[in-house]
Design a protein around this nucleic acid. Structure first.
Lengths: 287, 287
DNA sequence: GAATAAATGTAATTTAGCAACATAATTTGA
DNA sequence: TCAAATTATGTTGCTAAATTACATTTATTC
């Protein structure tokens, strides 16, 4: 149990004066870290030894030790739990919560990723005469991102968030072509239809989607992403980050497997792009 | 950056004696918490003021403050550090490294975000007759994502990854319109030009980009994202996640500030989208 | 309502941290 | 290579912070 939790729990056990101290600490724990025992005593309107006794009551060896434990307690935060945002949240707490949810999602991804499926996918990419990424809505931007990344290589790559185009592409897919379907829920009807068409064309169908979803059933390989309960009004944002990270990993693995000769090409691309950028040293010279 | 990360990073900057202190601290950080300045000095075989100076070198206000920061740093848990991928990596280790880098990036973002700037941006959004998101290359998909999110509200929103379109949009921007420019480096020339045009139109220009970059200079409000050294061949992937999270936070804050009446609309949208999806119970019935 | 126990405050003591100064080591320029 | 300047480190003594011991107040019990 961290100090702050202990403080909450044993608030009633404390004597009157000690509780006054506790309240000051709980009101702004972060600020307490930079207070001396004297100023804390003053703010709580108690004497210094009372503060000291308060520290001992909480199991600390003294005031400095108390501050140390408080610091650790604060840094601990709530470790990566999905906490829902509500009306009372400040911008600060919104950021905290979103980042923590994202981290929670990443942790789940790390633990649950099917490495074998990823390897199969990369192998398929290496063989493929053409790679396509399809997604709709929020997943469209993930597909878009994947497309951007693969543009750096010499394998032709396409992306679409237009269902008609997707259907045409799916019908025209050749064996060995890899078509990657991205969907958070895996339940979007049209996308499932497109995936079915692709499968019928004999191409390799890969899904970045929820396991056991209708879309997953159309796929030869499923890179499952964890779908947290969507109890919120706010969009499922964290899981999309997991999709992106998954794609990052695919690209990175792909790059490595392509071998060193690809590096020269990447360097060249970088070189070329440099012309469209301001150099770092230019900063001072700008208007 | 937490104190331990900083300590790792600036180890070379430190003077000989200070490094001795650093080594003792790094050897057993946890134990250091319960040492006085005197005993730490003794163990490092240096004088007390040297330890004090060491603390100041790391940005602490003194020895007690140093211990406080160290305590927080330790409580943070595994310090997610950017580890570069190399040829010898397995798919598993690639995933690990990418996730850790992403988490590191998120941690940095959490600590360094300018909340006031975010609040200003949300206020501007609330006033705006129109919101636009512009990005190029990898940042285009981030802009794309932002666009998707804002489509849920009644404020007109546009997105473009086409520089000509962007320019036209910038020129036609009206005062109170908000134009958000997304760029990892903030050094892409065309995007800076577009931002300049937008500024001349009198619209509110917001940048999600590196602080102190040319693009940042064109912006009324900058939501700075941390740019790690791009020593790698592989793309700057982690920082893009930070941009996305930032946008998530903006959208969420925007939603909350819009008040409860927006919730009905969001519910309606959700309801409508449901028709395009397979119901959960349908899974077993599928072919 | 006195006696006792508990809580709180006062004053003195101790200790830790730090600034100012002194000295040593290193770098720089001729 | 050596002197000057700069930087790094150590010594001393002061200040402030934390703690202990003791006194006083406040609550509790019979």
């Amino acid at each position: 149990m961290t100090l702050l939790e202990k403080l909450q729990a044993e608030l009633t056990r404390l004597s009157k004066s000690e509780r006054k101290v506790a309240e000051v600490v709980l009101a702004e724990p972060q600020a307490t870290l930079h207070k001396s025992i004297a100023s804390l005593a003053q703010q709580a309107a108690v004497s210094e030894p009372t503060v000291n006794r308060f520290c001992h009551s909480l199991g600390a060896k003294g005031y400095p030790d108390f501050k140390l434990q408080l610091a650790q307690s604060l840094a601990q935060g709530t470790p990566f739990v999905n906490r829902h945002v509500d009306q009372s949240d400040t911008t600060q707490s919104i950021v905290e919560k979103i980042i923590e949810s994202t981290m929670a999602s990443l942790n789940v991804t790390r633990r649950s990723l099917d490495i074998a499926a990823m390897d199969r996918t990369v192998e398929a990419f290496l063989q493929a005469p053409r790679i396509s990424f399809f997604g709709l809505g929020a997943s469209a931007s993930v597909a878009h991102d994947a497309h951007n990344k693969f543009l750096r290589f010499d394998t032709p790559v396409q992306f679409s968030d237009d269902t008609l185009m997707q259907k045409m592409a799916a019908i025209n897919a050749k064996p060995d072509d890899v078509l990657v379907f991205i969907s958070h829920t895996g339940r979007t009807k049209v996308l499932c239809e497109v995936a079915a068409l692709a499968r019928e064309s004999g191409a390799t169908v890969v899904g970045i989607t929820a396991a056991d979803s209708p879309l997953a059933q159309e796929c030869a390989t499923v890179l499952a992403t964890h779908v947290p309960e969507d109890t919120d009004l706010y969009m499922p944002m964290a899981s999309r980050i997991a999709q992106l990270v998954l794609i990052d990993a695919l690209v990175t693995s792909f790059t490595l497997k392509k071998g060193p000769e690809i590096h020269e090409k990447l360097r060249l691309i970088k070189e070329t792009l440099r012309d469209s950028r301001y150099e770092k040293k230019d900063i001072r010279d700008l208007p």
